[in-house]
């Protein structure tokens, strides 16, 4: 309450001088200036009309498509349409504001505020009406009706949630495997050709896929296409690197996973799943361009920097009878970002 009192009698170091005198603008007192401002506003509006006409002319005259790089790489059509539309809009805006500033009355006026709160009478009247309504409904006196109604409406939340069940299948063990399997050939990304160890020199990195993603069935239709292709690609992508075998320090049990210093890792970052491919061949570091997790490929793809917590999964390699690189098996752990059930 003391705050209330203070507010009523503020200690004013300086008395409120009150609203200043209204000062007249040149356009208020000089008819020539007023006419000039009027012409300026109208001129802006006319300019807007000109721009609109230019827009329509540009729309029909300038072809788009192959010549989109003209006019400094901007696209002639886009440039002309953009500039003419901007001219039309901006001159309307500037015109109206110029009109408001120069010609419309500029006397400030005062309005009193009212408290946001309702008056005491209104509150009482509302409470009374509410009370009457509730009394007449008898909701307080009939708990059976009230509780069953709350229960019935509340239960309706369940179908609202259950109805969303078919948004997707359950995860099952889908995240635990990829289409890699024993004998699956490693193929170059894009072209899909298999790889011989002799194709790679020390320091090379090849982006790869399982060859199945490029294969066709008897009728010449791809084995994987559309969504299926993308889902499998998203998990099965690999990088293949060759380093001096003496640089590589394989983990226990992985001694026979490399072929003459050729190692294969999942390309999918264990952080949030970006494909990784920035390779420093001297240090054997592979860096993810999304969040800069860095993995040492000569040390089991150990995390040497950044936010990832786990090494990239390694694909055990072998060579088939034709001399091509193939997988010994699927990855031995799930690829990509961590998830709760991963273990």
């Amino acid at each position: 309450m003391t705050l209330e009192q203070e507010r009523k009698q503020p200690r004013l170091p300086i008395e409120d001088p009150g609203l200043g005198e209204h000062t007249w603008r040149p356009t208020d007192v000089d008819e020539a200036k007023e006419r000039r401002a009027e012409r300026q506003v109208a001129g802006l509006f006319v300019f807007s009309m000109v721009c609109t006409v230019l827009f329509v002319v540009g729309y029909f005259l300038i072809d788009i498509g192959d010549n989109w790089t003209t006019f400094g790489g901007l696209g002639a059509s886009t440039l002309v349409l953009g500039l003419s539309l901007a001219g039309a809009l901006l001159s309307i805006g500037v015109g109206i504001i110029h009109w408001a500033r120069k010609l419309m009355a500029d006397k400030e006026i005062v309005e009193m505020r009212h408290p946001a709160a309702s008056s005491e009478e209104d509150r009482e009247a509302t409470l009374k009406a509410l009370d009457e309504g509730l009394q007449e409904s008898g909701i307080a006196r009939r708990p059976l009706i009230r509780n069953t109604m709350i229960g019935a409406v509340g239960l309706l939340g369940i179908p609202a949630v259950v109805g969303l069940r078919d948004l997707g299948p359950l995860p099952g063990d889908k995240l635990f495997s990829t289409i890699w399997e024993e004998g699956m050939l490693l193929a170059r990304d894009v072209v899909g050709t298999p790889i011989r160890p002799s194709d790679m020199e020390i320091g090379d990195l090849i982006n790869g896929q399982p060859i199945a993603l490029f294969e066709t069935d008897e009728e010449g239709e791809p084995l994987y296409e559309g969504e299926d292709l993308l889902v499998n690609k998203a998990k099965a992508s690999i990088v293949i690197v060759r380093m001096d075998p003496s640089d590589n320090t394989p983990a226990e049990g992985r001694e026979n996973w490399a072929i003459d210093g050729i190692l294969c890792y999942s390309k999918i970052c264990t952080h949030v799943g970006c494909p990784i491919n920035l390779y420093a061949r001297k240090t054997h570091h592979l860096l993810c361009p999304c969040h800069q997790s860095t993995f040492d490929l000569s040390d089991g793809a150990r995390v040497v920097f950044g936010p990832a917590a786990r090494p990239l999964p390694q694909l055990p390699l072998a060579v088939n009878e034709d001399g091509y690189l193939m997988a010994q098996s699927d990855f031995t752990e799930p690829v990509g970002p961590s998830f709760w059930e991963r273990g």
Partner: peptide, 10 residues
Amino acid sequence: FFLFGGEFPG
């Protein structure tokens, strides 16, 4: 899985 209607990207 519910968001993507299965495995990424779906």
